[in-house]
Design a binder for these strands. Sequence first.
DNA 1: ATCATTCTTGAATACTGATTCAAAAACTCC
DNA 2: GGAGTTTTTGAATCAGTATTCAAGAATGAT
Lengths: 204, 204
Amino acid sequence: MARPKQFDPEIALDLAVDIFWESGFEATSIERLCRRLKLNPGSLYGAYGDKRALFIAILDRYVDKVSLEAIQRISGSPSGILGIVNYFDFLIEAILGGKRRWGCLITNSLIELAAREPEIAAKVELHFTRLETAFASALARAQAAGELRPGFGPESAPYFVCLVQGLNVLARTKPTRARLRAIVDVALDPLRDGAALLSPKSVA
Amino acid sequence: MARPKQFDPEIALDLAVDIFWESGFEATSIERLCRRLKLNPGSLYGAYGDKRALFIAILDRYVDKVSLEAIQRISGSPSGILGIVNYFDFLIEAILGGKRRWGCLITNSLIELAAREPEIAAKVELHFTRLETAFASALARAQAAGELRPGFGPESAPYFVCLVQGLNVLARTKPTRARLRAIVDVALDPLRDGAALLSPKSVA
DNA sequence: ATCATTCTTGAATACTGATTCAAAAACTCC
DNA sequence: GGAGTTTTTGAATCAGTATTCAAGAATGAT
């Protein structure tokens, strides 16, 4: 018995993700948000609360999607090595093609906001933990299958997280495919022995 | 025949570096700057121009210092491998100890500003090129000395730049020394054969 | 059809924060 | 010591942007 919303709050959130992702929190004005979402200030505040609350909402949305996506790629192969290789291949293409040319919203938010916003720091932390866990279990599987060079195992997972962050930074420099490939080929060299058997495409 | 400045503009710049480094461009207000530098708005504008100009000035200052520092560490050893290992050891300690717990002002600025500020993007680019060049020449020396695993050479330099960026991101998560060490130990594994002879301390 | 409720609209408000400025002060040179 | 120049001071101004709000509009229930 009331007037229904004239917009889909979920779809609008997706629009908002893009703007914050590209420009960050501080540099994104409510006015720009309103223009892009085709919403008036009143509607926006009614639906989401203030700017900070909106940002938290879009960050949650992004984290859910990106965490899941990463875990699925990394854990999606029977071979742990192949899962990792596939994930990095995917990441390269994402950086070159889609919105990941803006890096990763999580990485960007860590740098812009985590120091003064514990709530945001916690969300970043959560994602990093998930990512590391996915790498660790892939590495454990690879190790168990004897595909891993001695000295490498699940405890090397933080290295892969670091690598991902490095690529997310470089994403903002408009790198070429060749450049990203070269980096990943060197970075994944420890996996090469096993991967060579499994993924001729990704290992020069 | 005029009133002299009551503050040292160079020293004040160093103060300003820290604030922008910690909080970024947008989140740093002129008021906070004035309070920390113990300057009134008029003096600040008189000395440096507007906020953007001040930021460019402190970024220049930072880039000069950090580029030089990196190049000296990387190129400072007769062995190319040792230079690289030393640089990463230094980076770990810097992240744990000093202001590098805020990551790297260059990395932070790339993410916050490069997309909309070509002038800043160019300065970031410049530093990355210098860093990559330093790595490449260290790798070339190592290769010439036969210290490098086959398949590695100067063309692997972008990988090391990526690594540095990853560490700069992780710096903002308050990582432990053990964690950073673990990452670097894995990351520098390709150099291990040669380094083992030269740097017992850094290679577990 | 009317009521109660919620949504939309877009102007008004309230802030924050960047920038300017006029007056006073400090210095050097003559 | 006075003239001329630059710096300091801190309040005033200006601009931009986050947030609120009052009025009008759309809906379902009675």
